[in-house]
């Protein structure tokens, strides 16, 4: 489906479905590889998508990850229905985590997810309503324009 100047695809993610966790990000990586985007950018997008997907699986009831490609950027818009985040500033700190043992057994929940999404993004925005859900918008630029 078309959106503005780009192509957009919405992926549904189910909360607590640990068996399938990561499949959307793997699919997104495949899509970006087929298009022939620079591998370093793909890697950053895939890491951001994977961290976001894991956050939905671990914490939310459900969510969507919308991949939008424009001629100049990759956008990842992540929206979930879940508990939300009370203190975003605290959640953005490396090492802060509210993970359960089950999440840690999966190799996740070290409090690196949100900071790592930001690290791999050119633009990063997060908003959350406690009791309702969290939205994360990520942009990765495809062309570095000299200023």
């Amino acid at each position: 489906m078309a959106e503005e100047n780009g192509l957009s695809q919405v992926f549904e993610i189910t909360g607590k479905d640990f068996g399938r966790a990561g499949t959307i990000s793997t699919k997104i990586k495949e899509i970006l590889q087929e298009i022939g985007i620079d591998s370093a950018v793909i890697r950053r997008a895939a890491i951001a998508a994977y961290e976001a997907e894991m956050n939905i699986v671990m914490y939310a009831q459900r969510g969507t990850l919308t991949l939008t490609l424009t001629p100049t950027a990759i956008r990842l818009d992540v929206d979930d229905e879940g508990p939300g985040i009370e203190d975003i500033e605290l959640a953005m700190q490396e090492g802060f985590s509210t993970a359960t043992d089950e999440m840690r057994e999966m190799g996740f929940g070290a409090g690196m997810g949100l900071p790592n999404i930001r690290k791999n993004s050119d633009e990063f925005a997060i908003s959350s309503t406690p009791g309702k859900g969290t939205s994360i918008d990520v942009v990765l630029n495809l062309n570095q324009v000299a200023e």
């Binding site: 068996g19 966790a21 990561g22 499949t23 990000s25 793997t26 990586k29 591998s39 890697r43 895939a46 890491i47 994977y50 999966m106 190799g107 996740f108």
Partner: peptide
């Protein structure tokens, strides 16, 4: 030592 599917997915994601 983490042998679930996440270890493989993570390896693929990071190249």
């Amino acid at each position: 030592g983490l042998s679930n599917a996440q270890s493989v997915r993570t390896a693929i994601i990071i190249d």
